[in-house]
Nucleic acid binder design. Structure first.
Length: 933
RNA sequence: GGGCGGUUAGCUCAGUUGGUUAGAGCGCCUGCCUUACAAGCAGGAUGUCGGGGGUUCGAGUCCCUCACUGCCCACCA
């Protein structure tokens, strides 16, 4: 039977197969617990739901790699590991996408189609294309529970959203009113503060003269937006501003318009800015709106939803706001009241979605009051959200994000949750045309709650997408009120949220606000009242960095530097890309994605692949020679450590050593992942597999495997150990490189002729340090031998011994060290081409000798000495050791140091000084022996 | 305007509570087709840890300051 692996690793040949297998076999589904919570603390994560319109980008890939590594790691450690996937309906993005599609088809516009037909059309679009991103996720091997996949507009989630809205309304936390909001005139909807981005731009500050109605004088105002003067209802000056004292209470005539407006005194007017007199346009500026309220001024809207002037009869009617600006400036100039135009840089507000300039607009909207006490009492939403983090119920990593969070949460304003869109959760409120009463209800009401007439109309606005996604940590588990569903009992709070800082406020903060608010009302599994500590939506938040291009530039379509993960995956394999991201994922640092690095990790995958091939060959030879290897991967429990002990003793030093290394690398990986140090974990497994298992263990194993008859115990033990270590390494690597390890793990079992003990390596047990003897003695012994081998290799190279020629060496050191070396002369022979080792009684120095802190070694070889090079080397050594020695001696001579530093530091330094002195003397001795220049 | 980061080898980054010779990968140089792997093996070079000051027996690590740089937030017309 042949189990030959192809010579080179080809990810495309294996990845799709396993991706499909994992999904079809439903390996990662976590059923709803029948009663109570699963044993232990389940590891539950919610995937930040990608937009249905989305295509996989590097940010997703990083996010999913991190989540998957953790999920697989926890699962293998025996925890219930639940990762819930889903997609977000993404109101604005999706509506725009479909509108664009309609336009490109030359079809009707959204408005022509009408609301019902249009939303139907969006659903069609969603059915057809909405799965693209989850398809790509499957390709990444994300070990999510697909049986729990949701869409934020699913019927069940829609019910939950309605429930949440109605509850907040009943608690007096949702209100409706006419306020200035950020208006996007392109898509013609309100957007929240967060959806506005500011950009510094060069603008103008226009100085305009307004005459007093009584003709007694005039005053000059300064504005960046002269077109809004059409809506002016006052001019404000600071009450303390002496220049304008006499104007207060008088009436001005608005140029071009002729309307009379008062001069009011308001603190907001800044005497330092402009002329100190500011025009007041309550319907088109948030500050002016506030002034208007203070002075009881009318609110005069002069623009429509497209940001065109709407003043029937006026010459400016129907002009776009920017065209109107030009016309008005011209007309003011003609009138002679345009006094000055100054350059003025200021930050203008742009819509994040469309990039158009935001128009502050007075309109009727729905708001969530975040700082208000609910009608039934208790803390405000923001107060709870602050307390949850402040009191440590939620932990941020990196923790500096907690500061950012507080900064925002402490200054939070009410949240405008209504959008004038058609795609989204329609607000469950009904307007009565007769009495004006609003009926907010879970079910479609038959009649107005005020006057009882049946002719009521549902609110046309929908909810901000983030409102529904903010509810996900509990709605994903079946929340529809105060009842504790089995899933909520088992899985809430989730353990960890992994996400990017770009949605810290949009999503993370909203989940905390809404989770803390709603879940406080849901009892604990034991029936007790829930406290904030258990109302939180997640215990940990891990904020990952941004993936940038190789030159640290932000990826953007306009720059054309977007790296398509699918393309990189096709080129290098998913495992290599995952490993690249994991190994770069150091908290708080952006990732400069350089595919040179990915190429390196593909080489790593290839290395693993070839180690498997080597193993296969040894097993084949072993089988032919009549050896049997029986190995079963641990599922729940480990082999008893004593079994490893016995195996290692029979196999030899290198096996004892590699077990000791496993002991230590298991610890490293576990503690790194515990702290979300994906980079450290990845580099630990990398160094172990390549630097230790391949570079040393596999080479040394070649010495031990003697398949010529008769059978011997050492070969048998080594063969077993080899399989054990390799299989363990596969499990260790599996969370990082799930495809490759799955393939090789199955191949190994096939080769061994035994059934794999599980359907997937992902369902086996993660290697634990305690499984392997720490064995410091073997570790130390190998360190000496490795150091010797490396030193000899270096010597050979320097001296110029031909590659293939074996040479004798002399060693000097303690009897323990020389004994160890002599006993392992075969290692030296194999790895450093040493033909013979003799022990010298005297210290070794001279041109062919090298010294380390544990031994001297000299090569017995006639050579032509490059005196100059040798002198240079020795002088360099001398200088180095001398410098270190002097530094050590200086410090040891410092009484304060001896008195204050801990003993182990002082002793260590003394030892170091002695070693440096010896090494320095040897270097000096070598120099003395060189022929003079 | 407010807040938060970063600056360590040519490049990308580690560096745990201050403690004994500051590390890794990639790249670079030299030599090897030693059959698991040339996507490899072996050897090698490379750092006044952004500048200055301070605390300390001891600073890449703590404090101050300056410079450069990035990000977030913000209703100054």
């Amino acid at each position: 039977m042949s189990h030959e692996l192809p010579k080179a690793y080809d990810p495309s040949a294996i990845e799709e197969k396993w991706a499909k297998y994992w999904v079809e076999e439903r390996l990662f589904d976590v059923p709803t617990p029948v009663a109570g919570a699963p044993e232990g603390i389940p590891f539950v994560q919610l995937l930040p739901p990608p937009n249905v319109t989305g295509r996989l980008h590097m940010g997703h890939m990083l996010n999913q790699t991190e989540m998957d590594v953790l999920t697989r790691w926890h699962r293998m450690r025996g925890h219930t590991a639940l990762w819930v996937p889903g997609t977000d309906h993404a109101g604005i993005a999706t509506q725009m996408m479909v509108e664009r599609q309609l336009a490109s088809e030359g079809g009707p516009t959204r408005q022509e189609l009408g609301r019902e037909a249009f939303t139907k059309r969006v659903w069609q679009w969603k059915q057809q294309y909405g799965g693209a991103i989850t398809e790509q996720m499957r390709r990444l091997g994300a070990s999510v529970d697909w049986s729990r996949e949701y869409f934020t507009m699913d019927e069940r989630l829609s019910r939950a959203v309605k429930e949440a809205f109605v509850r907040l309304y009943e608690q007096g936390l949702i209100y409706r009113g006419a306020y200035i909001v950020n208006w996007d005139p392109q898509i013609q909807t309100a957007v929240s503060d967060l959806e506005v981005v500011h950009e510094e731009r060069a603008g103008k500050l226009y100085h305009i003269r307004y005459e007093l109605a009584d003709g007694s004088g005039s005053l000059v105002i300064a504005t960046t937006r002269p077109e809004t003067m059409l809506g002016d209802v006052a001019v404000a000056v600071n009450p303390g501003d002496k220049r304008y004292k006499s104007f207060i209470g008088k009436t001005l005539v608005l140029p071009l318009v002729g309307r009379e407006i008062p001069v009011v005194a308001d603190e907001w007017a800044n005497p330092e800015f402009g002329t100190g007199a500011v025009k007041v346009t309550p319907a088109h500026d948030p500050n002016d709106f506030a002034i208007g309220l203070r002075h009881n001024l009318p609110q005069l809207s002069i623009m429509d939803e497209r940001a065109q002037i709407k003043l029937p009869g006026s010459p400016y009617d129907a002009l776009d706001r920017f065209a109107a600006r030009e016309r008005i400036v011209e007309d003011l100039r003609a009138l002679g009241v345009l006094i000055d135009i100054k350059d003025h840089n200021h930050a203008i507000a742009l819509s994040q979605r469309t990039g158009v300039v935001i128009e502050p607009r007075l309109s009727m909207q729905w708001f969530l009051a975040v700082n208000k006490t609910p009608s039934r009492g208790g803390d405000s939403i923001a107060a709870k959200a602050i307390a949850a983090v402040r009191d440590g119920h939620i932990q941020f990593t990196p923790d500096m994000y907690a500061k950012t969070y507080f900064e925002w949460m402490n200054n939070i304003h009410d949240w405008c949750i209504s959008r004038q869109l058609w795609w989204g959760h329609r607000i469950p409120a009904w307007h009565c045309g007769a009495c004006g009463k609003i009926t907010v209800s879970r079910e479609t009401p038959g009649a107005c709650s005020g006057c009882g007439i049946t002719d009521i109309k549902q609110e046309t606005d929908v909810l901000d997408t983030w409102f529904s996604s903010g509810l996900l940590p509990f709605t994903a588990f079946g929340w529809e009120g105060n009842e504790l569903t089995p899933d909520l009992a088992a899985f809430y709070p989730t353990q960890l949220l992994v996400t990017g800082f770009d949605i810290l406020f949009f999503w993370v903060a909203r989940m905390i606000m809404l989770g803390c608010h709603f879940m406080l009302d849901v009892p604990m599994p034991d029936g007790s009242t829930r406290t904030l500590a258990d109302a939180v939506p997640f215990r940990d938040v891990y904020i990952h960095a941004l993936v940038r291009d190789a030159d640290r530039q932000k990826m953007s379509k306009t720059k054309g530097n977007v790296i398509d993960p699918i393309q990189i995956i096709t080129q290098y394999g998913t495992d290599a890309v995952r490993f690249t991201l994991a190994s770069q994922a150091s908290p708080g640092t952006d990732i400069a994605f350089n595919d040179a690095r990915t190429e390196g990790y593909r080489a790593f995958a290839n290395k693993i692949w070839n180690a498997a091939r080597f193993l296969n060959m040894q097993l084949e030879r072993g089988t032919e020679a009549g050896y049997t290897v029986i190995h079963a991967s641990p599922l729940a429990g480990a082999e008893p450590a004593s079994a490893y002990e016995t195996l290692a003793t029979a196999a030899g030093l290198e096996t004892r050593w590699i077990f000791a290394r496993l002991n230590s690398v298991c610890n490293e990986v576990d503690s790194a992942l515990q702290n979300y140090r994906f980079d450290e974990a990845a580099s630990a497994v990398y160094r172990f597999f390549w630097g230790e298992f391949c570079d040393w263990y596999l080479e040394l194993v070649k010495l031990r495997l003697d398949f010529t008859p008769p059978k011997d115990e050492q070969t048998a033990a080594t063969l077993n150990a080899l399989v054990t270590v390799f299989e363990t390494a596969l499990r260790l690597l599996s969370p990082f490189m799930p495809f490759l390890t799955e393939e090789l793990w199955h191949a190994l079992h096939a080769q061994l002729g035994v059934a794999a003990p599980a359907k997937s390596i992902a369902l086996t047990r993660y290697p634990q340090a305690a499984d392997f003897p720490a064995d410091a003695e073997s570790a130390d012994a190998m360190t000496v031998l490795q150091e010797l081998i490396v030193t000899v290799r270096g010597l050979r190279k320097e001296i110029g011994v031909p590659e293939k020629e074996a040479t004798p060496v002399q060693v000097h050191g303690t009897t323990q060290v020389t004994g160890l070396i002599s006993a392992n002369a075969d290692m030296l022979a194999k790895l450093a081409r040493v033909s013979e080792v003799t022990v010298a009684t005297e210290a070794l120095r001279g041109n062919s000798a090298r010294s380390t802190t544990s031994f001297d070694v000299a090569m017995v070889y006639e050579r032509k000495i490059d005196v100059a090079a040798e002198r240079e080397r020795l002088q360099k050594d001398l200088a180095k050791y001398d410098k270190l020695l002097q530094a050590a001696e200086r410090q040891l001579g410092n009484e304060a140091f001896i008195a204050k530093a801990p003993a182990h530091i002082v002793d260590g330094l003394k030892k170091q000084a002695a070693e440096m002195r010896a090494l320095r003397d040897k270097a000096q001795g070598g120099l003395d022996e060189l022929p003079p220049e």
